[in-house]
């Protein structure tokens, strides 16, 4: 069944009051928001796991006020997009190609890519595939290299255990831990999140099969040779982003515990010596929940100075 923003709880609609659009990307139904003048410079806001466009609801506002066209897709498998059950649908390559298909469908040019979490590997792969269409890039709580630099991803408890065979589908699929408790633990103002946002993330992934990507996507992080199913793509990605020479901006949450600021932000500046920032904001992994509007202002200011 195709659901739109208008079909969701009124409180979610109030916080994310935009028109639903759909595009066919590689045979899948992708939901996206497309606001602002169609001839304005496009800003592409890319979420990760287990979020959807709703994560960017406050960030959208300053960008629209500044006159940009803002496009916010729900990655296939999340939000109001189609939730494929086939495991092979959820490779990094396929998700990146879905974004390429959306860019082509909308005939976007001079795109400002804004990447968070898995919106980084997918969005930056798409950027490299349509490099001539990119005008600038911003990254936050994300990475683009083969092996994560964080100890968090190498610890048996909880990361490796929660992604073990059978355990992952149980904890995150059957029990839905990630759009609920997992996100709750990864914001600063937990009570605000619980009151204003948690339902928006849980209600779009209501059944275990809808939540497949919440446990399957993290398994693409190459934490050991046996789990290295996307390593070659990550190597290609790192080589590509290192060669990228467009205006770049790094934004990070001070309270980030997964992609810690002291490790990941310097790595981005090593990759992109010309990058602006790091702009530090209040925020854990889902920093948009605590500083969404401020991030929108930072992006708008950066875009105003750097988009030609």
């Amino acid at each position: 069944m195709t659901r739109t923003i208008a079909d969701l709880d009124p409180d979610i609609q109030k916080r994310y009051p935009y028109k639903s659009n759909f595009a066919n990307v590689n045979g899948w139904r992708m939901h996206y928001v497309d606001e602002g003048p169609k001839d304005a410079k496009p800003v592409l806001l890319l979420h990760g796991n287990p979020a959807w466009g709703f994560l960017w609801r406050e960030t959208v506002k300053p960008l629209l006020q500044a006159g940009y066209r803002v496009i916010v897709p729900d990655q296939i498998g999340f939000g109001l997009s189609e939730h494929p059950h086939a495991a092979s649908a959820h490779s990094l390559d396929n998700h990146a190609a879905n974004l390429v298909a959306l860019i082509d469908h909308l005939d976007l040019k001079n795109i400002f890519f804004v990447c968070h979490d898995w919106g980084g590997p997918t969005g930056l792969c798409a950027l490299l595939t349509r490099q001539d269409l990119a005008s600038a890039v911003a990254v936050m709580s994300t990475w683009a290299w083969r092996e994560p630099s964080s100890d968090f991803h190498k610890q048996v408890m909880p990361w490796l255990t929660m992604h073990a065979p059978i355990v992952g589908p149980y904890i995150m699929g059957r029990q839905g831990a990630f759009p609920g408790r997992g996100m709750y633990l990864s914001v600063v103002d937990r009570e605000k999140f619980k009151t204003e946002a948690m339902n928006a993330y849980q209600s779009v992934l209501p059944d275990p099969n809808d939540r497949r990507l919440t446990w399957q996507w993290p398994r693409s992080i190459p934490v050991s040779p046996a789990t290295d199913i996307a390593g070659d793509r990550f190597e290609w990605l790192e080589e590509g982003v290192r060669a990228l020479n467009i205006p770049s901006c790094v934004i990070w949450g001070r309270e980030e515990v997964v992609f810690t600021a002291d490790v990941f932000a310097p790595k981005w500046h090593e990759i992109w010596p010309h990058a602006e920032g790091t702009h530090m904001v209040t925020g854990n992994h889902f920093l948009q929940e605590d500083s969404g509007y401020e991030i929108g202002e930072l992006l708008s200011d950066f875009a105003g100075r750097n988009l030609s």
Binding site: V156, M157, P158, T161, M162, A164, P165, I166, V167, Y170, I171, Q175, A177, R181, G182, L185
Partner: peptide, 24 residues
């Protein structure tokens, strides 16, 4: 049963702690 059978670094204790963290 599975993690105990696999053994090594995989333990019931780690599984239960993970379960408690995520309240599942």
């Amino acid at each position: 049963w599975l993690v105990q059978g696999v053994g090594g670094r995989w333990t019931i204790e780690a599984l239960r702690t993970t379960g408690k963290i995520y309240r599942v």
